[in-house]
């Protein structure tokens, strides 16, 4: 049987501001993960700093260490690749006051 892979849409057409994060996603079966964050609308203000978070339980989160910057223009796409992440994954972003971005967050997992 071919190894499992999946594209999960974890956040769609949500406007992020302040501190925002995707919903927890269980991916313990996967060896590698790629987050894509696409700006569906023209972002407002400075592009946010984003972080991949991991978790022992889906409730309490710690930074995995991967950092990236969200898109600065509409239809821009930012990418984060991670492996060795245990079970739980999410993307968290921190925006300056007044900044925002309407995002499509997709998580691509491969066994």
């Amino acid at each position: 049987m071919l190894p499992e892979n999946i594209t999960a849409v974890v956040t769609r057409n949500e406007t992020w501001a302040g501190v925002a994060a995707s919903e927890p996603y269980e991916a313990g079966w996967a060896k590698e993960a790629v987050f894509f964050v696409r700006a569906l609308k023209q972002p407002v203000g400075m592009p946010a700093k984003a972080f991949v978070d991991i978790s022992p339980d889906g409730i309490r989160w710690v930074p995995e260490g991967t950092e990236f910057t969200l898109p600065s223009s509409r239809d821009g796409i930012s990418v984060a690749r991670v492996s060795h992440f245990g079970n739980w994954l999410r993307v968290r972003a921190q925006f300056d006051d007044g900044a925002e971005c309407t995002v499509l967050v997709t998580l691509h997992l491969k066994a």
Partner: peptide
């Protein structure tokens, strides 16, 4: 609009 993707879970608890 609130829907998101289902996931494969081992029902992992703290």
């Amino acid at each position: 609009a609130q829907h998101s993707s289902a996931m494969l879970s081992t029902l992992s608890h703290w």
